[in-house]
Design a protein around this nucleic acid. Structure first.
Lengths: 228, 228
DNA sequence: ATCAGTTTATGATATATATCAATTGGTCGT
DNA sequence: ACGACCAATTGATATATATCATAAACTGAT
């Protein structure tokens, strides 16, 4: 019926639109915009008005806030399935954080007002959004606590395992972020991130080829992540 | 009509039930249970099944998770108006954190299934819950970032200002938590929390009478909170 | 091809924080 | 009143992390 939502790989449709009537889908699909971003492009800029409901179709992004002194704190890395604009989209009028593509990314953007209309008229859809949002914020909060309880080496191990297990599912991967960004994520200095990586390399736990990482001793990394 | 929801001071009713029909209110009020807790009582225990939607009517609580090594990490202190069970209530079947009263507290507990039914049937109610939840998780996330970017003294200043501004609205107040709990909240050791407080006292910024704190130099505290 | 700027890297040192030890005072239960 | 346990405190010391300086490798723009 509606050409515009015939995206083969759109999990958004599969996940949430099961319970939305075709009328409602039609109205959403009419205003739907797909956008492509290159590495380094802003998807969301802190402070800007929230007018869209943004779903990450492909790629990888970082969520971060910029402090008064221009320093950045990275909250989380988000991959497809995640609603990158979900955190404050229903409570604020302006974004309190930025989202930037760290790999080539595609988003599907819906008008926030259209989404709100459907929430108001469709309880099942509202519940799905509520569950998804609850999941996303839960994950961000837990992530932050997990990082906080570790020391430098534990944090680095945790980050490497995060990329290994949750993002690339492979012992060999290209780090999509700089050492500086890892530092901004775990709340330590760039130098110490580098030192910890070097240490892991010297201990034979990982191999480093510039941005590429190979995890050699997975179990040791798990151990480091668990006990400093 | 329904005696049981005639709680004079129930902001829950005022805030959210404006848009709920009296039928729906009736059904909720029928199953509503009010509970009292003393300081130190568990309101929610990590790992237990989620069966209730819990609203804090009065008092003060702490949200925390207990790690495998029995150490606690405090996420946040919540005061009335906050939905203490809100964080994972719609995404998980079991609580991933605990909530404990740190002052005498009263909660109003509704069956989670009743609340879900209303969400399904009432879009405006769903939207209100969504907004509230978005606000709560936003606040917890921002709090965590705020703490993370400060050093010891900055964190202590931040905590004192939090109690001063957000909880007691008074330069003189009784700390509802131990030094150890402050440490668990800001992610530093108890000894260093004490040392920082002592330092502030020696510098004439605060006065300490056991658990009671008097803020003498508010501006210096703000300065410390902003620039280490 | 070159320059400027950034990223990665390493070392020396300063600083912040944790750990360990010891003391005091309070609280709880018996 | 007693002992057992915690909370708060302070000092000495160890450890972890940040800061500062330097340099090589890389990146992008002209």
């Amino acid at each position: 019926m509606n050409q515009e939502c015939r995206c083969d790989k759109c999990e958004l449709k599969e996940l949430f639109f099961q319970n939305v009537s075709s009328n409602e889908i039609m109205s959403l699909c009419g205003s739907r915009i797909e956008k492509n971003y290159n590495k380094g492009d802003f998807i969301i800029e802190q402070g800007k008005q929230i007018s869209e409901f943004i779903y990450l179709k492909s790629g990888l992004v970082k969520l971060f806030i910029t402090n008064s002194d221009d320093k950045e704190q990275i909250l989380s890395f988000a991959k497809p399935f995640d609603f990158v604009s979900l955190l404050s989209v229903f409570s604020q009028t302006n974004y309190s954080y930025s989202v930037m593509a760290i790999e080539e990314s595609t988003t599907c953007n819906l008008s926030i007002n259209d989404v709100k209309k459907i929430i108001l008229s469709n309880g099942q859809f509202a519940m799905s959004i509520l569950e998804k949002m609850s999941n996303v914020s839960d994950a961000v909060i837990k992530e932050s606590l997990q990082i906080r309880k570790r020391n430098l080496r534990g944090r680095i191990a945790y980050v490497l395992l995060h990329f290994r297990d949750d993002i690339y599912d492979n012992d060999y991967f290209e780090l999509p972020v700089s050492r500086k960004e890892i530092a901004e994520y775990i709340g330590m200095t760039t130098e110490n991130v580098i030192r910890a990586l070097t240490e892991f390399r010297k201990d034979g736990i990982i191999k480093i080829f510039g941005k590429a990482i190979e995890i050699v001793e997975y179990k040791k990394l798990v151990q480091l992540s668990e006990h400093g």
